[in-house]
Amino acid sequence: MEFQAIVDRLRALNAPGIVEVDEPRAPDKETKDKGRSGRPFVMIEPASLVDILHLCRDDERLQMEVLIDITASDPAVDDANLWILVELLSVKHRHRLALKALLPKANPVLPSATAIYRAAQWHERECAEMYGVTFEGHPDPRNILLPDDWVGHPMRKDYEFPTEYHGISCE
């Protein structure tokens, strides 16, 4: 299925929380729009992420069996939001779907998708330690790549690098 067909299907299913559909566009000099390249995605409300994932997995025409990735992105220091990026893949129908949600940095709380995809478990752990996103209902919310006692969330743009670690200077 093409991207547009997937979006239509999602709309037909009354998928909750769809904010907008963002597709790449050519730059436009008149409106001073720099344009956007890359691949299209669906913008959603963070709260309805789990519902949409449920829908995507269980609907027989979408049938996204595989959760490829859950990660976050911090677009800029002064941006108020984190981006939550979800990649889905349908093995049977051979199509992909990218989801994106804006999550306020002030209160980065998101329901966990672990119950739907087990694959989410480790991605969410990584996302949590790197960006400080709290996944509610995650069964094993420990650090995965960083040490257990690591302070701060390194992938945030405003992260300050530590000057020492356990008495060892990092200068």
Binding site: P24, P27, K34, R36, S37, R39, E87, L89, R96
Partner: peptide
């Protein structure tokens, strides 16, 4: 690189 976001697997 022109602005945009892409994913390639």
């Amino acid at each position: 690189v022109p602005p945009g976001e892409g994913y390639v697997g």
